[in-house]
Simulated assay, not measured.
Amino acid sequence: MVNIRELENMIERGALLAEHNHPIDLANLFPSLCEPTHPLNLVNAQGHIAEHATDDETLFQQWLGQGLSLEEFERRLTKGALEHTRSNVSQAARLMGLSRAQMMYRVDKVKQ
């Protein structure tokens, strides 16, 4: 759930990052998603599975092959981001393209 302040901040950041007289796009709203190492780069800007996804396809196949639920995948992704950032919640949130509050929600969910 995104509150109004988070939405305002996201739009403001997108407007600042967008080129002059160009529309605000996904890369402006979520800059970390453009990093090739971002764990959510299975989907391109149009919402389709990325065509260059040889490694992504492997990850996708592993995920489906293990029979992981979306909740379990999210739990593992959250734990992995925290491990990668040595438990730095703000850095893990940026890595996943989330606000710190959204990341804390997921961290609390993992602890349950």
Rank of each mutant, 00 (worst) to 15 (best):
M1E: 03
N3A: 00
N3M: 00
I4T: 11
I4A: 09
L7T: 10
E8H: 07
E8W: 05
E8I: 14
N9R: 14
N9T: 04
N9L: 15
M10L: 15
M10G: 02
E12Q: 15
E12I: 11
E12R: 13
E12Y: 03
E12C: 00
R13M: 11
R13K: 14
G14C: 03
G14H: 10
G14S: 13
A15Q: 11
L16D: 11
L16H: 08
L17I: 00
L17P: 00
L17R: 15
A18I: 02
A18S: 15
A18W: 06
A18Y: 02
E19R: 14
H20L: 05
H20V: 10
I24H: 06
I24E: 04
L26H: 01
L26I: 05
N28V: 01
F30G: 00
P31C: 08
P31A: 05
P31N: 01
P31E: 00
P31M: 01
S32P: 00
H38E: 01
P39A: 01
L42Y: 04
V43Y: 07
V43F: 08
V43N: 00
A45F: 05
Q46S: 10
H48T: 05
I49H: 01
I49A: 06
A50H: 06
A50L: 05
E51H: 12
E51L: 06
H52K: 12
D55Y: 09
D56K: 12
E57S: 07
E57C: 11
L59V: 15
Q61D: 14
Q61Y: 08
Q61K: 14
L64T: 15
G65M: 10
G65F: 04
G67A: 08
G67E: 11
L68C: 04
L68E: 07
L70I: 14
L70N: 04
E71K: 14
E71V: 13
E72H: 12
E72F: 01
F73H: 11
R75F: 07
R75H: 13
R75Y: 13
R76L: 12
L77V: 06
K79N: 07
G80L: 02
G80D: 14
A81V: 03
A81N: 06
E83R: 14
E83W: 10
H84G: 01
R86Y: 11
R86A: 14
N88M: 05
V89T: 13
V89L: 12
S90F: 05
S90H: 03
Q91W: 08
Q91N: 08
Q91V: 13
Q91H: 11
A92G: 09
A92K: 10
A92E: 13
A92D: 08
A93V: 10
R94Q: 15
L95S: 02
L95I: 09
S99P: 06
R100A: 07
A101C: 00
Q102D: 11
M103T: 04
M103G: 03
M104Q: 12
R106Y: 09
R106N: 07
R106S: 01
V107Q: 06
V107C: 07
D108W: 05
K109Q: 10
K111W: 01
Q112P: 00
Q112M: 08
